[in-house]
Amino acid sequence: MKRVLAAVVALMAAAVVAGCGTGSAESIVDQDELVIAVRPDLPSVGFRRTDGTFEGFDVDVARYVAGKLGKPFTLVPVLAADRDKVLVDGRADMVVATYTISMDRKATVLFAGPYHISYQDILTRPDERIANVRDLAGRRICEVQGSNAVQRVVEERKVPARVVPFADYKACLAALKSEQVDAVTTNDVILAGLAMQDGSGLRLNNAQFNEQRSGIGLPKGDVPGCEAVNRAITDMYQDGTAEKLLHRWFGTSGLDLSTIAVPQFEGCS
């Protein structure tokens, strides 16, 4: 009889252990440490200093979220075109890189957040003011390869601006200052960071014409991870960290910070 009882207890214990072991793909909440990908090329947003460390708004957000999850982390650089890839092939567990949430991207990655609401904006020379996207009609605007910001003006808004292509934002800013173009348009935090780095007083116009939701990219299917990150973002806005970080990085850039928008989450399923 005792042997039977012992066998039964052993069997039940085995069932419990087996039950606990049946998890699907590992969630970031179960990992010991995280690899977080940030941009190396955007001043004040995600930027690699000469000593190899990273700084910027996105970097601080990544730090805060990892802290809330209670995980040590390492930062790795990621360029705009590789953000989906690093998540899919597992080189990063999380991407915090002004990663705009879109339906197409949702097919390959899961978005927590957004953690920040930004807008498309217009950067001009200090003496000029282009406060409305319609006023870009007939003006020369800079197009950076790989960015769809210009299409959103010319095709989505149907504003007949004259598009001048350049390799990157650095070349764009040089062209703006030497009057080869009249305006640069993209995400406002990117423009704010570039203008501050440039330091010659380029004007951010706060035209705010396309809302852009920057989300935190996670591997598709990690619903518990996404929910945990969303709770961390809620805390970040409730405890005032979000406002503090925005003022720290963009307080002097001319970016309108009078109302700090609370992000409306996408949902994790």
Binding site: V223, E227, N230, T259, A261, V262, P263, F265, G267, S269
Partner: peptide, 19 residues
């Protein structure tokens, strides 16, 4: 920008609790 997103996230949080 401030009130509606919070109400929306509150609804969503219940989805998390249920899941």
């Amino acid at each position: 920008l401030v009130l509606l997103p919070q109400a929306y996230n509150l609804t969503l949080e219940n989805g998390t609790i249920v899941r």
